[in-house]
Write a protein that binds this DNA or RNA. Sequence first.
DNA 1: TCATATATTTAGAATAAGTCTAAGTTGAGA
DNA 2: TCTCAACTTAGACTTATTCTAAATATATGA
Lengths: 142, 142
Amino acid sequence: MTAHNTSDKIVTAEQLLLSRGVKPTPQRVVIADYLLQTDSHPTADEVLSAVSEALPVALSRATVYNTLNTLKEAGVIKEVLTEPGRVRYDANVSHHHHFVDVKTGKIVDIPADKVEAIGELLGDQYKVHGFQVLFYGELEQH
Amino acid sequence: MTAHNTSDKIVTAEQLLLSRGVKPTPQRVVIADYLLQTDSHPTADEVLSAVSEALPVALSRATVYNTLNTLKEAGVIKEVLTEPGRVRYDANVSHHHHFVDVKTGKIVDIPADKVEAIGELLGDQYKVHGFQVLFYGELEQH
DNA sequence: TCATATATTTAGAATAAGTCTAAGTTGAGA
DNA sequence: TCTCAACTTAGACTTATTCTAAATATATGA
Ligand SMILES: [Mn+2]
Ligand SMILES: [Mn+2]
Ligand SMILES: [Zn+2]
Ligand SMILES: [Zn+2]
């Protein structure tokens, strides 16, 4: 439930939304909760089907998109772009990167400290606010 | 015309297509030529308007998409993903990265050697085939 | 409590990027 | 010159996302 939250304290989706100034409606809580407990970087469609089949609250497509955009603007989730034509969502809002397994399509998080200092490699004609590394390859499953 | 070609020799779009096994039809030559002489990372729509207003050959939307996909599969151009919902195209097919100026939207190339060795930073549970770094920030204009 | 305002959700229409289809056009080789 | 495959085309289609306008829920406060 709090897999992607940086603090050790257990924080419910509801508490998280409240702390970011987002009113915790049932739909929003259920979407945020789903994103917090998965590490699969789902698309909007995947959120919609997962949430609407598993959970008791009614949910429309428009609300999924509204909620994802609201949560993104509130800093509760981030967008991840790995392929053309679809946006993925990530409740891990810490600065981190992604590894795409080209065989399975699985997308896993890479902590920022693994690729530290990239931001300082460019010369002074670039003022780097942030960066995003997308790795492609194969995950060894030993 | 050859701004993004790695060799010093002047190579026309037509010669480049021939060398990659793509039949150089007038539409394909004109699209490849446009991509080779710009560094603006245009979208398909931008290619279509630039080429159809400036150049003498008739050009349909379907042909622009067909050609971009053909050129991509032939290794003449690459896709660049910087924002949701639109694919950009790049005739610089060398391994390189991108810097997005968040003020202007300008996208500039960052040579691979600026961020060398990122591929070796991950542990041995990852077999890295490649990676792509996307920087966000501001370009200093002096 | 009731009335009303405001925020949220909803179904479905609209938009926009990209693909597909089926019919024309082209051009290289027999 | 004829033929056939490759290519291009307009427009229909698909899919992801946004918009609209109406319904519902929540908050406020007389
Ligand atoms: Mn999706
Ligand atoms: Mn476009
Ligand atoms: Zn992630
Ligand atoms: Zn580039």
